[in-house]
Structures are given as C-alpha cells and as structure tokens.
Design a protein around this nucleic acid. Structure first.
Length: 436
RNA sequence: GGAGCUAUGGCACAAUCUGGUACUGCAACGGACUCGAAAUCCGUCGAGCCGCUUUUGGCGGUGUGCGGGUUCAAAUCCCGCUAGCUCCUCCA
C-alpha cells in the first residue's frame, strides 16, 4: 500500500511514477477525489459527534440529579440518526478509497529502468564456474546427445510426470528414488547455507488466511492465480514469503532486533493462470514446487544494502553448485506488484540455450509493512514502518532441472555437484536404477 | 465436531447483574528531597489509527478481542464471529 499522504502532497510525481508501473493517471485522480470527499465527510460527522458527546454528558448529569432531560433526548434523537446516515456514507467512501489504494502497485526505486516489460531489464553481472568452458555443453554448438532436463530425468527414472498427471493433473509430478533424494539434498544444502549466513530457519503454515495474502500484496488483485480452499478464508501459499513476512503482522519489533532474517523451505502452489502452453514439460512451471525462501525485516536506511546482501546469498548457492547464471535488474514493467526494486537470478539451461529465472530478490520498502502494520520505534521514540525484503534462495525444482541439464554426461548419467555429495551419502553420479 | 468459561492500557486487575467521566496497583516518565543513589513524597500516563491545525505542539473523533444491532448514550443489553483455556469426542 502506498502512503496516501505522499500521494496527496506529491500528486504530479506520483502520477508519473505510477505511469512507469503501467497505471493510468485516472486511477490516482479518482482515488484522490474520493479521498477528498471522504475527508469532508469525516469533518462533518465529527463535528456532530463532538456535539453529541457534550449533550450526552449533560443528559447524564441531569439524570443523576433526577432532573427531566426529555427535551435534550428528543433533540439528540434527530442528531443521532443524522450521524448514523453520515457514518455509513463515510464508511462507504472509506471502502472505495481502500479498494482503489489496495490495487495500486508499489513505486519503483529511482535507479530501476523504466520500460514496458522484460525487454527493458538490465543485466548486472554474469558468472560461470572456472572450469565451465571444459564442459561439453558449454560449446557454442551443443553436442547432439545433450538432452532437456526432463528427458534426462525420465531416462534415469527419477522424474515421473505421467503419473503426476494421472493422480493430480497437468503440471504435477512425482520425484522417484534418487530424484527425491536429489531434491532433498538440494534444499537441505540451501537451508544449511542460509542458516550459516544468519537466517533463522522456520517451518511455516502452508495455508494462510486472506488477511495474510493481503498483507504481502497477493490479494486482492491476484486471487485468480491462488489455490483458495473452497468455503474457507484460507489459501495454499504461493510462496513462503507470505507466512514468513506476516509473522510480525500487526506488531512493533524492538529496534535492536533489526535486521531480522528468516529462511524456510515450503511447497508453493500456483494456478499459473495465463500460462497455458508455456513450459508445459518439465520442472520449470508447476502447480506445486518446493522453494527455499529468504525474508528480512530492516530499518528503512538499511534495506537497500540488505537487498544486495540477500542477492549475494542467493548467488552463493548457484556458485557453490557450479551453475552458470546472470543477475538482472527488472524494469518497472517486469517487477512484481509489491516490489520497489527486484533482482532476478537466471540460471543457464544449456539444452534450451537460454537463461531461466531461478530466483527473484526484492525490496518492497514499506509497501507490505503498511498493509501489515509492522513497525519499530526509531531513536526518537517514534513509530516507523519497517522495510521488508524477500528472495528465493532458490527455487528447488528449477535448481534440480539446472543440475540435470548442466551436469549430464554423454552416457546418460548425471554427475552430482561436489557440495551435494555429503547430502547423498557420498554418491558421485545419478545412474539409471530400477525401482518399484 | 459437542459443552462450558474467558477476552478491558506495557503487565495485573475493577466496573458488566442494575447502560451515563473505565477503578486501583505495578511498570514507565517528569519533579522534590540527596554529594549521588535507594526509599519516600508530588505530578503525568489509552497504545494505535483518523480529521483539523498557527506542527518539538494543540483541538476533536475513534478506541474495553472482531463485526453488527438496540439506545439520546454501550465495557455493560442483544445477535454473529475469532482466539485462548477446561472437559467430552476424534486423531499423527
């Protein structure tokens, strides 16, 4: 949620910055004129209420003294019904203002490139492991035997998309045998790394209420992509960002505790509405996938420094796994609803011959904190909104996909990255094995 | 799922039956006393949100778990909900 006072005072600037985010200027002018009407209604009704409070005191005083107050009561009857009518009018305006405001995206930080979509994103840096040029799939022309990750996984018998579809539907799968073990190794590795970096490990609810979904900005605008539990005020989380960030909803955090860092593994559920036909095979786009998430609560002046650190925390995972990637800064048109600034990490997929998103790290500044009412007391004792950040560290399924594609060998086996071997009993390769 | 009880400042509680300024204590803050501190005494103390404003402040509105209703007036009466506790039932 944007600060309505900022919108009032800096209307021209706000219009321009919202246009950068693809919001028509009429949305803001409509909001502000409703807000003006709302404040006028408040002024009127509050004057009446002040009168009523004084009159009520007089009536109470008279009653205590056994005097007749019927004339004053009769006069107040009219005032009271007027207040009632004006009150409901004001509540109506209030709801309209809230509803419009709740649909406005966050404003982009000044350094974020302005553009309509991903074409305006800016590459920040590229990384690849030192020995990468020696791998066969790093060649300009990929060898013929190079397979897509889902073909590698199906040939090894460790990914079963057919039975996933049979039991649940399209975009669901079973990990089988070493596939399940590899997935588990990957997220255990990620959690251990983040814990060493000072993140507190959490296991969160994976079903949350509407207020939590509103707090992080998924609701009310993006309900269509959520797995809502029918008949209940509850939703399967699209990311652990929701329960992790809402942990402190409505609370004042002791200032000396900031910054606070959480990490959690969780399944993530997304309907992928509007993605029909895209990435229909493999681990890239599923209705349910595992993700290790990082969340931070910071003081305002810390948040951009912490954003850089969190991005490095995500990059560290890819570097230790030896997976090539690049970091891009998303443009105003490509960023998520709540973000003021976002870095995406995209991992190299050699068979697709392109980078694919594997992590997204964002500073939402006080946008989510205002929706959730998360505050701290600054040095002068005043309440201030915290800043919240979130980032994937990383999407686990996509990491498995990147490993299968980047570490596959000509004989169909997959070499296990060094850092994962301790999590797999020292195993060095994935080899096709029968299972039941 | 069933029954009962509970929800009031940072904490602990009173007022609820019988509607009319939300009591008191602790904590906190300011001051007096003191070389200083403790103790004692005096004073202040409803967080947050909203509106107005001449903006280190002032005035007003709201605010007794949440949402409604009745009433001139609701902590108090009525309806619905949520959370916690106890018992029953069920369960990994």
């Amino acid at each position: 949620m944007l600060d309505i006072k900022y919108l009032r005072k800096n209307t021209d600037e706000a219009i321009r910055r919202l246009q950068d985010r693809g919001v028509a200027s009429e949305k803001l002018t409509e909001l502000l004129s409703l807000d003006e009407a709302r404040r006028a209604a408040i002024r009127t009704v509050e004057n009446l209420k002040a009168d009523r409070n004084i009159a009520s005191d007089k009536i109470a005083y008279a009653k205590r003294n056994k005097e007749d107050a019927s004339e004053a009561i009769a006069a107040m009857q009219a005032v009271s019904s007027e207040i009632k009518a004006l009150d409901s009018k004001q509540v109506e305006l209030d709801e309209q203002v809230q509803d419009l405001a709740a649909h406005l995206p966050n404003l982009a930080a000044p350094e974020v490139p302005v553009g309509p979509d991903e074409s305006a994103n800016i590459e920040q840096r590229v990384w690849e492991p030192a020995e990468y040029q020696n791998r066969p799939h790093a060649l300009l022309e990929s060898p013929k035997w190079l397979k897509a990750h889902f073909d590698v996984g199906e040939a090894l018998g460790i990914l079963d998309f057919e039975r996933g579809a049979k039991v649940s539907g399209a975009r669901f799968l079973y990990y089988v045998g070493d596939g399940a073990r590899l997935e588990r190794a990957v997220y255990n590795f990620m959690l251990d790394e983040h814990r060493q970096e000072g993140y507190t490990e959490m296991i969160t609810p994976i079903v949350v209420n509407d207020s939590a979904m509103f707090g992080t900005g998924q609701y009310p605008k993006f309900q269509d992509d959520a797995y809502r539990v029918e008949g209940l005020d509850q939703t399967y989380i699209p990311t652990a960002e929701v329960p992790l960030t809402n942990y402190y909803a409505g609370e004042t955090i002791p200032a000396q505790d900031l910054p606070i860092k959480f990490t959690a593994l969780s399944p993530s559920f997304r309907k992928e509405a509007g993605s029909a036909g895209k990435d229909t095979r493999g681990l890239i786009r599923l209705h349910q996938f595992n993700k290790v998430e990082m969340v931070k609560f910071t003081k305002p002046e810390q948040s951009y420094n912490e954003l850089e650190k969190m991005t490095v925390n995500a990059e560290n995972i890819l570097q230790k796994l030896g997976l090539p990637y690049h970091v891009i800064m998303l443009s105003t048109g490509d960023m998520g609803f709540s973000a003021a600034k976002t870095y995406d990490l995209e991992v190299w997929m050699p068979q697709q011959n392109m980078y694919r998103e594997i992590s997204s790290v964002s500073n939402t500044e006080d946008f989510q904190a205002r929706r959730m009412h998360i505050t701290f007391r600054d040095d002068s004792g005043k309440l201030q909104l915290v800043h919240t950040l979130n980032g994937s560290g990383l999407a686990v399924g996509r990491t498995v996909a990147a490993i299968l594609e980047n570490y596959q060998n000509e004989d169909g086996t997959v070499t296990i990255p060094d850092v994962l071997r301790p999590y797999l009993g020292g195993q060095e390769k994935l080899i096709a094995t029968p299972h039941h």
